[in-house]
Computed example of a mutant assay.
Amino acid sequence: MNTRTSPAGQGGRVAQSAVLSPNQNTPGAVDASERWWHALAPRHGIVLAIAMLLPFVLTPFLTFQVMAQSLVLGLIALSLTFLGGYGGMVSLAQMTLAGVAGYAYAVLSLSNGGTEHLTLGWPWWLAMLTALLITTLFATLVGWLSVRTEGIYTIMITLAIGVAFYYLVLQNYSVFNGFQGLREIYPPPVFGIEWRDPLPFYFLTLGCALVGYCLVKWVVRAPFGIALQGIRDNPRRMAALGFDVVAHRVAAYTLAGLIAGVGGILFVWYNGLISPGSVGTGWLINILVIAVLGGMKHPIGAFLGALVFVLLQTFAIDIIDRERFNLVIGGVFLAIVLFSPDGLLGLWAKLRARLRSKRP
C-alpha cells in the first residue's frame, strides 16, 4: 500500500496499521476513532473563541453578509474538501446537491412571494428532514454514477449532472417557477427567536459549521475514513485486501451530500430565495475555487477559502467594477495555485517552516 502521509495529519499515519482487513477492527483503528478529538489543537479553541466573539464587535452587515455567508459557503465547500482531500474524488456537483436540498425544502415548506400555489406547506422540520433525505439519496446516485471513473471523467460527469439540474429548474415553471424561482423562504421562528436576524443566524450557521467540521474530523480518523484514504492512495491494493472500493466511494458521496444539503438549506435561508442562478455553472465553479483557495487537504481550509471569497465578492466593487469581479477571483486563484498547490494553509505552513529554519 502507498505509504505517503494522508491529509488527515497525524490520523493518516495509522493507516498502515489500521487498514489490514475489512473484517477486523485493529487497535490502531479503534484508537483513532475513539480519540479523534486529539486532532483538535489549542488553536482550534482560540479560533472558536474568536468566532464566538466576532459578532459582538462587528456590524450587523459584516456579521450577516460576510461572516454568516462565509460559514454557509464553507459548509458546502467542506463536502468537496472531504471528497477531494480524503477520497481523491473531485466533484463539481456539490452546489447542485445544495440546490437539490434548497429546492426540495422550498417546494415542501410554506413560502410567499406569490408562489404559494407551488408549495405544499409542510411543517418546517418535516420539510427540512425530507429535503435532506432527498439530497442524500440523490448524492448516493451521483456517487454511484461517478465512482467508476477517475480524473477528468469524474469532473465531466458531475459537471453534466449540475448543468442538467440547472436546466431542469430553469425550464420547469409548474414546479420550480422557472427563472424567478421560489421566494421569501426564511428560517422559521423557533423558541421565540427570529433566526433571520443577523446575530441568531450567524450562530445558527456557526453551530452547523462546527458540527460539520467535527463530523469530518471524526470520520477521517475512524476505520471508514482511514480505509477511504487508503483507497485514495492505492485502490488496487485496498481491493486486494478485501475492501469494497466502490461502496466506500459511494458512501463518501452520501456523507458529502448530507453536508452539502445542510449548507444548501442554510443558503436558501440566507438569500431568502432559491432560483436557477443559485445552481448555475458559475456557482459550481465557485465552490471548487473556495475549496482550492483554502486547501483541499484541510477541513478548516473550506471556511478560510470561503471567507476570502466572500470578502473579495463584497468589497471588490471598491477596487474594480462589479462586472470584473471574476477577474479578481481568477487572479487570486491563479496566484495561490502557482505558489501553493495546498492553498492558503499551504502558504502558512511554508512560512512557518521557513521561520523555524531561520531560528538559531
Rank of each mutant, 00 (worst) to 15 (best):
I76T: 12
T136V: 12
V30A: 15
Y105F: 14
D31Q: 01
E184Q: 11
G230P: 01
I329A: 11
T63V: 08
A51V: 11
W125Y: 12
L284F: 03
W195T: 03
I320E: 10
S111A: 14
I157D: 09
V216W: 12
A209C: 05
M156E: 12
T81E: 07
T205N: 13
G282V: 12
I193C: 13
V66W: 01
A77F: 05
S33A: 13
V19E: 00
I317W: 06
F309T: 05
A101C: 06
Y103N: 05
A240F: 14
P55M: 01
A291L: 07
V328G: 15
E323H: 07
R249L: 15
D233C: 01
F309K: 14
S275C: 08
I157F: 02
T140K: 03
T5P: 05
G178C: 08
L168P: 06
A222G: 12
R352N: 14
Q313T: 15
I259W: 01
E34M: 15
P198G: 09
R352M: 12
V245F: 00
I320Q: 09
V219N: 09
T119D: 02
I157T: 07
G263V: 03
G178Q: 10
Y166A: 04
A251V: 13
A104Y: 05
R249G: 05
I336C: 09
A131I: 07
L345A: 10
R324S: 13
F138N: 10
I336L: 13
W348I: 15
W37Y: 11
S6E: 06
R249Y: 04
G88Q: 01
T254E: 02
A98H: 08
R322L: 14
E194N: 15
W37Q: 06
M67L: 12
L288F: 09
L40M: 13
I134S: 02
R221T: 14
I46C: 06
P299C: 10
M95V: 14
R13W: 09
A316S: 14
V169A: 01
A209T: 10
V175P: 10
L48Q: 08
V163M: 07
V57R: 02
V190T: 14
A291F: 09
L62K: 10
L204Q: 03
L345V: 12
S6G: 06
F203D: 03
V310Y: 08
L170F: 11
C214N: 04
D31Y: 00
R236N: 03
A127R: 09
A131F: 10
Y153S: 03
L199I: 12
A15E: 14
A68Q: 09
G162Y: 06
L48A: 15
F243K: 00
T314H: 05
L293K: 13
H248L: 00
W283S: 04
I287G: 01
